[in-house]
Design a protein around this nucleic acid. Structure first.
Lengths: 146, 146
DNA sequence: CAAGTTATTGAAAGTCGTTTTCAAAAGGCC
DNA sequence: GGCCTTTTGAAAACGACTTTCAATAACTTG
């Protein structure tokens, strides 16, 4: 699966006439090895740990490429940092976010997606993307608050 | 209705021990007179037109108060600016956004809200808020693209 | 209503995430 | 290996927003 993603990126790079560099390889490896919703800063630290000397700017630039290549998705939380998560082709999930501990739970709901398509259709829109975040307190934080 | 909102704010101000100032009155008037999803910058320009000398910082500070008072809602679009819209008590709508012309259409869907509550419940969350944006092309932009 | 206390203000400086600039370095092609 | 072009890192620039701070304005109290 990681190999598959690397292929996806290489295909994209070839299509765009991008050069293959050590930096991009490292950043892709680091990104693919994670499973959280990481900020650029966090990614940058991991990258630097594995290859000191790689600059932040390169990490920023490369993550944008991943989005273009379709293997990452940007998400903006109210904390003001852009975070990146893996994007599996054809799959799109949404987020349930705990405002207590910032935990993020992913979910998918085909019924909601269908209703979203209905709404778009009703307004004559051709839908290309959507974002949905539910905010609340997770069971642990609820218990702590009570 | 505008009067009602002013009362809401005054009540909030009194509760918080806030002082009543000319600046806050002006900003509230300007805000209530709008019907779009305005950025702070846009609001600031309108405010300055009506009362030159009011600073940006005051507009930023005051809009946050409106949110706390429950009469405005923040929304962040991918353009990086925070926008504010009116918030009617008990009503919460979502947005359908045209990526061509940036038009914003508001909608409400009780079915989706119910499903959201179900999802939260399933994960043991106590839901406090949600954000949902659908992105696509509006009929006009669709026609222009074709 | 004057005096004192405290909140509020505007301007400017500061933050912080992100982007751009630019010269040096590296990649790919002949 | 040379040549042209992309990519890079460091530092500067950017832009939205927040903070600082001294001046000013709003309540409170006597």
């Amino acid at each position: 699966m990681i190999l598959e993603k690397k292929k996806t990126f290489n295909a994209f790079a070839a299509r765009q006439g991008l050069r293959s560099t050590r930096q991009r390889d490292v950043i892709l490896d680091v990104f693919l090895a994670t499973h959280e919703h990481l900020s650029v800063e966090e990614l940058y630290l991991k990258v630097k740990a594995s290859q000191p000397g790689i600059g932040q700017a390169t990490v920023y630039r490369t993550l944008k490429l991943f989005v273009e290549a379709g293997l990452a998705r940007e998400m903006m939380l109210p904390d003001g940092q852009t975070r990146y998560e893996h994007q599996l082709v054809g799959e799109h999930h949404d987020h349930l976010i705990c405002t207590g501990c910032n935990a993020i739970i992913e979910f998918e709901d085909e019924q909601i997606e269908q209703l979203q398509r209905d709404i778009a259709k009703r307004h004559g829109f051709s839908l290309t993307a959507h974002k949905m975040q539910l905010y609340g307190l997770c069971p642990t934080c609820l218990r702590a608050t009570a």
